[in-house]
Simulated scan of single mutants.
Amino acid sequence: MRDLDETDVEILSLLATDARRPFSEIGERVGLSGPAVSDRVTRLEETGVIEGFTVDVDRTKLRGGVPVMVDVDLAVDAGADSDSEPLEAARERLRDANPVEHVFITAEGDLRFYARVEGRTVREWLSGTFEGVPVDDWTVTLVDEVEWTPSIDGVEFALTCAECSNTVDSEGETARIDGEVYHFCCSSCLSRFRDRYQRLEEGA
């Protein structure tokens, strides 16, 4: 199966939001004609990426990576007064890691994070990410399903994509760019936002 390009991913995102959306409308959003969008959707159905009228997306066939929860066992230096330095060093690495979406620090000071990484390179990616950080070991758990409903004092609210203003659900992405945190509904929007941000910086 050929790799999905950004246009395929954007079409999937639009169909996932509204499976009854006309191909002509999708074409206007992605810069293609209605028939060209229809051809792409047919190919996605034939390759098994789209299953059924409601657009059941098999995300293992996308480039988004495999969702994992990682528990990090930080090394404790017996000669140190506090283990905050290894923790801060690990958190700093995770802030700069694109696959990482959420980082958690427990009341006991343990480090846990959720990320989407390439399934065949999870261990290799972890080794590279924490190179030079005092880590004894880590435990990787494959996440089967994620449900994320953000709320404040029990009142649900919706995040909007910084690029297209669509609602960001549990499959969205979060990125820290120049110290600011932005939320995106898909990887395509994140890429377009990064590219435009970089062009604006270069022109400044």
Rank of each mutant, 00 (worst) to 15 (best):
Ser84Trp: 04
Asp71Tyr: 04
Ser170Leu: 05
Asp178Trp: 02
Gly179Arg: 02
Leu159Lys: 14
Leu159Glu: 15
Val57Phe: 05
Asp178Phe: 05
Thr106Met: 00
Leu126Asn: 12
Leu74Asp: 07
Leu87Ala: 08
Val68Asn: 03
Glu85Gly: 11
Ala90His: 02
Tyr182Ser: 07
Arg59Lys: 04
Val181Leu: 11
Thr7Asn: 04
Pro134Gly: 06
Arg116Gln: 12
Asp136Ile: 08
Asp81Cys: 01
His102Glu: 14
Thr160His: 15
Arg112Trp: 02
Asp18His: 10
Cys164Ser: 09
Gly48Leu: 05
Ser24His: 02
Asp144Ser: 14
Arg29Lys: 15
Leu44His: 07
Asp58Pro: 12
Ala158Asn: 10
Val37His: 09
Arg63Ile: 03
Phe113Gln: 08
Arg192Ser: 14
Pro86Asn: 01
Glu163Thr: 08
Asp71Glu: 04
Glu156Trp: 05
Gly172Leu: 01
Asp81Gly: 10
Thr149Val: 05
Ala204His: 11
Phe23Gln: 11
Arg20Phe: 03
Glu156Val: 10
Gln198Arg: 15
Val155Ala: 13
Cys186Tyr: 00
Arg40Val: 06
Ser24Leu: 07
Ala162Ile: 05
Asp178Lys: 05
Gly132Pro: 11
Ile177His: 09
Glu108Arg: 13
Met1Ile: 07
Arg59His: 12
Val70Met: 01
Cys164Ile: 09
Ala175Trp: 05
Leu74Cys: 07
Leu126Thr: 05
Ser188Ala: 15
Glu92Ala: 10
Leu12Gly: 10
Leu126Phe: 14
Arg2Lys: 12
Thr60Cys: 00
Ala162Phe: 02
Ala78Leu: 13
Arg120Met: 11
Arg93Thr: 01
Arg40Pro: 07
Arg192Lys: 15
Leu94Gly: 02
Leu126Ile: 15
Leu44Trp: 10
Arg2Tyr: 09
His102Ser: 02
Gly48Tyr: 04
Glu45Lys: 15
Pro99Arg: 09
Asp178Gly: 03
Cys189Pro: 00
Phe130His: 12
Leu12Met: 06
Glu180Ser: 11
Pro86Trp: 03
Arg59Val: 07
Asp73Met: 09
Asp71Cys: 00
Ala36Thr: 14
Ala115Val: 08
Ile50Ser: 12
Asp8Met: 03
Val117Trp: 15
Val41Gly: 10
Trp148Thr: 10
Val66Leu: 15
Phe193Gln: 06
Gly128Val: 05
